[in-house]
Design a protein around this nucleic acid. Structure first.
Length: 107
DNA sequence: TTAGTGACGTCCC
DNA sequence: AGGGACGCCACTA
């Protein structure tokens, strides 16, 4: 088992058509200021077949994080988001004010 | 053990 | 606007 189950647990809660940021996931997973670990954790997920909707996590500027190391999954991420109805502007950015997910805390 | 490297974020020019 | 400097921490050589 991976050591990032807590992170995956949060990501699984993001509904289709919405997005979250790496930093946001880190905070919800009780790991403040560890956004990089969220990115690392999602990198692992993508290599496997998983039920974690990794494509619904973007950076704090509302952009897909592009990297040659992702072997094309970055472009796939954009396609998956667009397929869920999320629009990118001409700079390749998403409107976070419009699409960012806000977790509903139960009590 | 130390140094370098990221699917990151925040500050400061 | 865009870029550099750090801080962060797991992983690797």
């Amino acid at each position: 088992m991976s050591a990032y189950q807590d992170i995956y647990e949060i990501v699984r809660q993001i509904p289709a058509g919405q997005v979250a940021t790496y930093g946001q996931i880190a905070q919800l997973a009780q790991r403040p200021r560890q956004a990089r670990l969220v990115g690392y954790a999602l990198h692992q997920v993508d290599l496997q077949e998983s039920d974690v909707p990794w494509h619904r996590v973007v950076n704090a500027r509302g952009e897909v994080s592009y990297s040659i190391l992702r072997r094309g999954t970055d472009y796939l991420q954009r396609s998956l988001l667009e397929a869920e109805g999320i629009e990118f502007n001409q700079e390749g950015k998403i409107s976070l004010s419009q699409y960012q997910w806000s977790k509903i805390v139960d009590n």
